[in-house]
Simulated scan of single mutants.
Amino acid sequence: MSVDHLLQTIPPLMVYLIAGLVVGIESLGVPLPGEIVLVSAALLSSRQELAVSPLWIGVAAATGAVVGDSIGYALGRRYGASLFGWAARRFPKHFGPAHVTAAERVFARWGMWAVFFGRFIALLRILAGPLAGALRMPYPRFLIANALGGIVWAGGTTAAVYYLGVAAEKWLSRFSWIGLAVGLGAGLAVGWVVKRRTARLVERYAEEQ
């Protein structure tokens, strides 16, 4: 069975559920590859024969982001610093003291904007909900920033990947798979740069601490 035939056996509803669940669990505070899953689902929606709707991909991911962040907020508000102590033992690469300190300083400086733009940054995407709750940010303010950030991130990412996928499919039908390899390489390079900048931010705050 070819890859195309295998993809056609996947029910669209399953794609929506997986995208929403993974993004929601990541937003709750569990380090999962939510962005990778969203991009993969959006790429599937760009294949017309698969009947996967980019609109529902965006809706599922945005819903998962808002609900997951809200649950994370409730957990952070209820358990506070003890939650981060437990998370640091389970996920030291994501919830170490330096990571939490860096996120706290960003929140202290930017407030609601940290929640909104945190959706686009790997470190803050995981910490935003629990940290906002632990720092006692008023929930109405958190919800506004959380909902807007989730909608813009999920909708924008889905739309961008969908249209790039459609354009790439047309382009590749005329040329070769080399273009796809170049595009994937560029995407990986951008991801690496963002990861390095986040790591340097954490290291700088750790040195200051």
Rank of each mutant, 00 (worst) to 15 (best):
R136V: 08
L75I: 14
I121M: 13
T158I: 04
P54F: 00
P33R: 09
R90V: 14
S45K: 04
F107A: 10
G191I: 06
A62H: 02
R196G: 06
G76V: 01
A206S: 09
I71C: 12
L172K: 10
L17G: 01
W192Y: 12
A181P: 11
V193E: 11
L21F: 08
A122C: 07
I144C: 10
E26R: 03
Y73A: 03
E208V: 13
R89N: 15
T158P: 14
W110Q: 13
A147N: 10
A60T: 04
A19Q: 06
R204F: 08
D69M: 07
T198H: 06
L127Q: 10
W110K: 04
E49Q: 14
L124G: 06
L13K: 04
F91A: 13
M137E: 08
S27R: 04
I178C: 05
L201P: 02
V190Q: 08
A189E: 05
W153F: 12
R196Q: 15
R125Q: 11
A134Y: 00
V100M: 02
P138N: 05
P140Y: 02
S40K: 01
V190I: 12
S27G: 06
G24N: 07
A168K: 02
A145K: 02
G149D: 12
A154Q: 08
A19M: 08
A167T: 11
L124W: 01
W177D: 15
A42F: 01
I10M: 08
A65V: 05
A114N: 08
L28F: 00
L127P: 09
G118P: 06
A41I: 01
E169G: 09
W171R: 10
V66Y: 00
T158N: 06
I10R: 05
R197S: 14
L180S: 09
E203W: 03
I10D: 09
Y79D: 04
G118V: 06
A42M: 07
A51Q: 14
A65D: 12
T9H: 13
E203D: 14
V190M: 12
L201W: 11
L135I: 05
R105H: 09
A102G: 02
A103S: 11
R196F: 03
Y205D: 13
V15R: 02
Y162C: 03
L131E: 13
V152R: 03
L75V: 12
G165W: 00
V39Q: 05
W171T: 13
S45E: 07
L124A: 07
Y139M: 15
S173K: 07
L28N: 07
A154E: 05
H5M: 15
G118K: 01
P92M: 00
F116M: 05
V30Y: 00
G111N: 04
S2I: 00
S70N: 10
I178L: 15
V39T: 05
A102E: 11
A134Q: 09
A98Q: 09
I36A: 15
R105I: 14
D4H: 13
E104H: 00
L32C: 07
S40N: 04
L38P: 07
M14A: 14
T101N: 11
R197H: 09
F120P: 04
P33Y: 00
S2G: 15
A81M: 11
W177E: 15
T157W: 01
A108E: 14
V193P: 12
G111K: 02
V22Y: 01
P140M: 03
